[in-house]
């Protein structure tokens, strides 16, 4: 019997891409948090009125997150279950 194979140091192209896709999926909520907290820095404490620009900005960010998640989802699903790539 063998000692367990060491995980390879460098990966082939396809698994490499899959790993980066997972990284991207993990980073997505962090990007989201950043974008959603950003407006806190625009507004002055004294400002009272809600402007339509704010509304459009938030829905834009929302759509962006949804779009990115939709783009990642099929690739993430395909790669699942390939054991040697779990990290």
């Amino acid at each position: 019997m063998m000692a367990r194979k060491k995980p390879p140091l460098f990966l082939a192209r396809a698994p490499y891409r899959r790993r980066r896709l997972r990284d991207a999926a993990r980073l997505l909520p962090i990007l989201g948090i950043f974008l959603l907290l950003l407006p806190l820095l625009w507004t002055e404490e004294s400002r009272l009125n809600l402007s339509a620009v704010d509304v459009i900005y938030f829905f834009g960010v929302w759509l962006l997150l949804i779009g990115l998640a939709a783009a990642f989802a099929p690739g993430l699903r395909k790669g699942e279950g390939l054991k040697e790539e779990e990290d």
Partner: peptide
């Protein structure tokens, strides 16, 4: 309270787009 109601939906959005975590 203006746009604050959106926060109730932003939280789940972040959790779901970050489902891999």
């Amino acid at each position: 309270s203006g746009l604050e109601f959106l926060t109730i939906y932003f939280g789940p959005t972040l959790v779901f787009v970050g489902w891999w975590w």
